[in-house]
Design a binder for these strands. Structure first.
Length: 1079
RNA sequence: GGGCUCAUAGCUCAGUUGGCAGAGCGCGUCGCUGAUAACGACGAGGUCACAGGUUCAAGUCCUGUUGGGCCCA
């Protein structure tokens, strides 16, 4: 069967879609799995993709790696699991579902019904998992798509139960408190990241108030706050021990405050707002002045105040009782001279820093607010009111009791809810934690694995060393239902390790749970008997779990640890995981290691590879909001996924990749198109010649030097491919493969082109065909894991259609093995030398200002080493043709044609002369170049004088530089010199003109749309003498090259095409017409 | 404040053990072309972020500084 014709202008995306259909129709993936069943295993563990939105192009990077390393290992004949994972649970999904309904807060969800809400979250995850599946297939990602794991599955959730149970049995689970920014309207905690997005500059009522010192009647601390509601929960007042404070007398009262705070001017700490348009702030001194005469009676250090006790601002409220006996002055380094009074109000239940400080000092924590931001009943006149609404009444109350000093409107940056824009408050929240005193064991696991890049391990260990306890709870709805049952009567809690255990412990509610997944709200119905006090209403805590638990149990749950231990043992630990680096050290990598260490005391992976982020063409991070995120489907339709995959594969994984039209186009132009063009060149000729791979083979001795060279390079590349794939360093291979395509296209094919023309099957043509066929099919196999579609297309046409017993898909074939017999290092070196000499000769030609079209009499090469010498001898014909010279001459020296200077070679002089290298350099620079060269040519010694001593140097110590006379143009590199003869004989001149004419005619043929084989009648009309002579002298040559049956010097009646051009400065009109057939 | 990491041509990046600073793109000039949507040659473009140190010799090793990224506090 003949090869199919290959269109050089191909629609790659359309072609990829055809291949997808082919794979589907032929069950190509399933066949591959059958083929490798029972073979040695290669275990890959997929980090689940968040199934919450369609894929962007940035998801394709990791997935490209996953697919290409899987394909490589499959092509070595290994059995794989091919299991993809979807991350389904968590706040991200909730947020999207809330948006769909326009919910603003948790109350809205509860009113709507948790059950319905959770079902919709599940449905959303399933929906986008399905979309991502389709997109992944489009990417060419071969996975067992019907067997993907979902973190929301029962197995996965119960797996986490088992993990938590084990932690519980070791006494590691505890209930603690976390202070967090909280949105009262949404009724939810806000993460640090979310909080960073929500800062706005707003005005708050700030208050200066007195704290009367109990030990010193009539003396007060002067304190300031921008959040009056927190005064309800004041516990302590902080000073900086080494700061200077003043004692100010006004009337019969004394006030303590920071000296600088007292004296300095004050300003609103704003960046966006214009301070000049805001109401001014009075210095504290000025505020005193406002109230009447005052005097500073004493200066003192903060430490002198530490330990004094005071009467709190709201000690009469029941909720503050616990703080009354705790009120005292404490020292704190964070107190500043630049803000407030230098004495800071501390309420550990109402602020992040306050909470930390309070924890360190063991201060009481007063937490005055409910989830909705209203005060608890024990806070008297504040009870039931929102924290944000009480500033005015607090001021009034302070004033009534005589402890208000001043108030003002103060502008500052304050965090707001990123979703509903309400102001945040700080709350103390009960949370569940895993005690992390077993971090050393996790670190041991981390050390078992190989990390790529290697610094990843250090980074992970750093996190493990410094991380706090693992907070596993979140006050939400859609997620792992934490299997913690807590007794309301006695406070005892325990962790349930699985469904069966729960069933056996359930005393009520099982019937309402039965038949549902272990999620809220159904699981919340199940009550158990308290193991401590026997209370039968012990219920599950309402919290859901941290989503990283979901993703981290998968090395056990999805690999069958709980269901089929024998299977699990075969596949665990995974040989390989690969994910994006940013964030994962403290997320997936961490959680995966922790869970596996707890359960089976080892790392769940042998090799972990990380990669960076995908940026846009300009290097900016891709964000939906900045509008530079690229939709996967669009990109796939526009540029095709092979281009995308190559771009990702070639990029250094540790840095970010820039993705955009510019970079994609570069890949297309530098890699995909040249490869396609070589393939098209071969196919379209093979088709015409009816090349048969099995029949038209070639023996080694029949192959040309170029053939043997390209096979040598090919086999070196195979070797590199194995290294590169197996060490997860595919970028190296891509770089070399790119070079290979380039040299194949611009050297091998260009230089071998004519061997493919002509009739019949002479040995050399046969060798050319056989060689190029072998190179194409083998190289195609090397890149197949990276560009599976392109490779499949090429394979289908070149191999599958030709060979009845060939597997239908390239992905069913074995990865090539390097044939070391074919690697000929010397030949490769000679070709490399040839390319270098060619480049030098072109440079010399350029210098001669004579076009390559113009034949020259002679090229002289003075080889720099044996390899170059052999290269010229072996590839002499290529030099003649490529450089358009009549003769190539090898010479030992060009000394008589050049003037010479000498320069030091420090690489050699350095070791030789050590400390005196600088002097040696100077000495060499002063040598006479010509004398030195002659001496070396006769193997005579050359000496230099260094610091009075005479020393020998040899050729390696210096570099000779040359320049050439009027008749020659030259170029040199090291010892190598190339010279071209600039003298033109009339004969050479005419040949050059003839070639000029031919080129013009050929262009015209092409423009006129003639076929390569069409014969023409040609008219060359012009008066000038020079072209005429050339035409006469090279009449046959011109006819032959342009397929002209006749050349006239009078205009044709009806030319098909014509062009007015200039040849050697003379006007020439070219006309052509199609010749009548049969001539 | 701490950890990791990066800084090389206008842009994107290579630079393995210390030895004359590289590629691709872009730009300019010239050339070549009946496989090519190409290709080739030449040119302009560099204080290898900065400052010390080790060394005959530092983009490379060491210390510090500055700036960017990620993470932690």
């Amino acid at each position: 069967m003949a090869f199919e014709k290959v269109d050089p202008k191909v629609d790659f995306p359309a072609q990829e879609r055809e291949i997808l259909t082919f794979w589907q129709e032929t069950q190509a993936f399933e066949k591959l799995r059958e083929q490798n069943e029972g073979k040695p295993r290669w275990s890959f563990l997929d980090g689940p993709i968040t199934a919450n939105n369609p894929m962007g192009v940035h998801h394709a990077w990791g997935r490209t790696y996953k697919d290409l390393y899987q394909r490589y290992n499959a092509s070595l004949g290994r059995e794989l699991r091919y299991q993809n994972g979807f991350d389904c649970q968590g706040l991200w999904v909730e947020v999207e579902v809330e948006k769909e309904h326009g919910f603003a807060c948790k109350k809205d969800i509860e009113t709507y019904g948790i059950g319905k809400f959770v079902e919709e979250c599940k449905a959303r995850a399933s929906h986008f998992a399905a979309i991502q599946t389709e997109q992944s297939k489009r990417l060419g990602y071969w996975m067992d798509w019907d067997n993907s794991y979902y973190t929301m599955s029962d197995d996965n959730n119960y797996g986490i139960w088992a993990f938590l149970k084990k932690c519980f049995e070791k006494g590691l689970i505890y209930k603690g408190v976390d202070s967090m920014p909280w949105c009262p309207r949404c009724g939810t905690g806000i993460s640090q990241m979310e909080m960073n997005e929500g800062y706005h500059e707003v005005a708050h009522t700030s208050v200066f108030f007195k704290l009367p010192l109990r030990e010193r009647p009539g003396e007060n601390l002067l304190v300031w706050t921008t959040t009056p509601w927190t005064l309800s929960s004041n516990v302590a007042a902080a000073v900086k021990p080494d700061m200077t404070y003043v004692k100010v007398k006004q009337g019969d009262q004394f006030y303590y405050l920071g000296k600088a705070n007292f004296e300095n001017a004050r300003a609103h700490p704003v960046q966006q707002l214009d301070p000049s348009k805001l109401p001014g702030l009075m210095s504290i001194q000025a505020q005193f002045k406002n109230n009447g005469p005052f005097e500073v009676v004493e200066e003192l250090e903060g430490k002198e105040l530490v330990g004094l006790t005071y009467t709190g601002p709201f000690d009469m409220l029941d909720g503050a009782t616990e703080a009354v006996d705790a009120h005292r002055v404490i020292d704190w380094e964070e107190v500043t001279e630049s803000e407030g009074t230098g004495i800071v109000h501390i309420a550990p239940g109402c602020g992040a820093e306050d909470y930390q400080l309070g924890k360190e000092l063991g201060l009481p924590q007063i937490a005055p607010l409910f989830e909705d931001g209203t005060f608890r009943p024990e806070f008297g006149f504040l009870a039931g009111r929102a924290a944000g609404d009480v500033a005015g009444d607090i001021v009034a109350d302070l004033k009534k009791r005589g402890v208000l000093f001043a108030k003002e409107q103060y502008y500052h940056r304050y965090p707001h809810c990123w979703r509903c824009k309400d102001e945040l408050v700080f709350r103390l929240v009960d949370e569940w934690f895993i005690h992390m005193n077993w971090r050393e064991e996790i670190m041991d696991s981390a050390r078992q694995a190989q990390w790529i890049p290697a610094w990843g391990l250090e980074r992970e260990l750093d996190w493990l060393r410094n991380m706090g306890d693992w907070m596993i709870s979140k006050k939400r709805y859609w997620g792992l239902a934490l299997p913690i049952w807590e007794c309301h009567a006695c406070g005892h809690f325990e962790v349930i390790g699985g469904r069966d255990e729960l069933k056996s412990r359930a005393v009520s509610g099982w019937d309402r749970f039965e038949g549902h997944s272990p999620h809220r709200p159904w699981l919340d119905a199940v009550r158990i008997r308290c193991a401590q006090c026997g209370d039968e209403k012990t219920s599950r805590v309402k919290d859901v779990g941290n989503p990283w638990l979901d993703a981290s149990i998968v090395s056990l749950s999805t690999m069958g640890y709980f269901a089929d231990r024998a299977y699990w043992e075969k596949w665990f630990p995974a040989d390989f995981v690969v994910e994006a680096l940013p964030g994962q050290f403290r997320n997936w990598f961490y959680a995966l290691l922790a869970v596996s260490t707890m359960m089976v005391e080892q790392s769940p992976f042998k090799v972990l590879k990380g990669h960076g982020l995908v940026m846009d063409d300009e290097g900016k991070p891709m964000h939906k909001s900045s509008g530079n995120a690229v939709d996967f489907n669009e990109a796939a339709d526009e540029i095709g996924v092979d281009v995308m995959r190559w771009l990702y594969a070639m990029t250094s994984p540790e840095r970010n990749v820039l993705f955009g039209p510019k970079h994609c186009d570069e890949v297309r132009r530098a890699v995909i198109l040249p490869w396609w063009n070589v393939y098209a060149f071969f196919c379209n000729l093979a088709r015409v010649d009816d090349f048969k791979p099995a029949e038209h083979t070639a023996e080694t001795q029949d192959r040309s030097a170029l053939d043997r060279w390209i096979l040598s390079d090919l086999n070196k590349l195979i070797r590199l491919a194995h290294e590169s794939y197996s060490r997860y360093d595919i970028g190296k291979f891509c770089a070399e493969a790119g070079r290979f395509i380039d040299v194949l296209s611009t050297w091998y094919v260009r230089r071998s082109r004519r061997r493919f023309y002509g009739d019949g099957w002479p040995k050399d043509k046969r060798a050319a065909y056989a060689t190029l066929y072998e190179v194409l099919t083998t190289f195609n196999r090397l890149i197949a894991p990276i560009v599976p579609f392109l490779a499949e297309t090429v394979y289908r046409n070149l191999v599958a259609s030709q060979c009845a017993d060939a597997p239908p898909s390239v992905h069913h074939t074995e990865f090539p093995t390097a044939d070391e017999m074919l690697v000929d290092a010397e030949l490769s070196a000679r070709v490399a030398a040839t390319l270098k000499l060619m480049s030098l000769a072109r440079s010399a030609r350029k210098d001669s200002k004579l076009k390559v079209r113009q034949p020259l009499a002679q090229l002289i090469i003075v080889p720099g080493d044996d390899t170059e010498h052999q290269a010229v001898q072996q590839f002499r014909d290529h030099f003649l043709e490529e450089l358009n010279v009549k003769q190539v001459t090898l010479r030992e020296s060009a000394g008589d044609m050049t003037t010479v200077s000498v320069e030091p070679n420090m690489k050699a002089l350095g070791p030789k002369f050590g400390r005196s290298a600088a002097a040696a350099r100077e000495a060499v620079e002063n040598l006479d170049g010509k004398l030195v060269e002659d001496a070396f040519a006769r193997s005579q010694p050359v000496t230099i004088n260094i610091e009075g001593n005479s020393t020998l140097i040899d050729p390696a110590d210096v570099t000779i530089r040359r320049s050439y006379g009027d008749d020659w143009a030259g170029a040199a590199d090291g010892q190598t010199v190339v010279l071209v003869d600039k003298r033109l004989t009339p004969e050479l001149k005419n040949e050059g003109l003839a070639r000029d004419i031919i080129r013009n005619v050929q262009n015209l043929r092409k423009d006129a749309g003639l076929d390569i084989a069409d014969r023409i009648t040609l008219a060359l009309v012009g008066d000038a003498k020079a072209p005429k002579e050339a035409m006469d002298a090279f009449d046959d040559y011109i006819k032959n090259e342009t397929l002209a049956v006749e050349i006239t010097d009078t205009p044709l009646g009806k030319p098909l095409a014509s062009n007015d051009t200039r040849i050697d400065g003379n006007a020439l009109r070219i006309e052509l017409a199609k010749a009548t057939s049969g001539v």
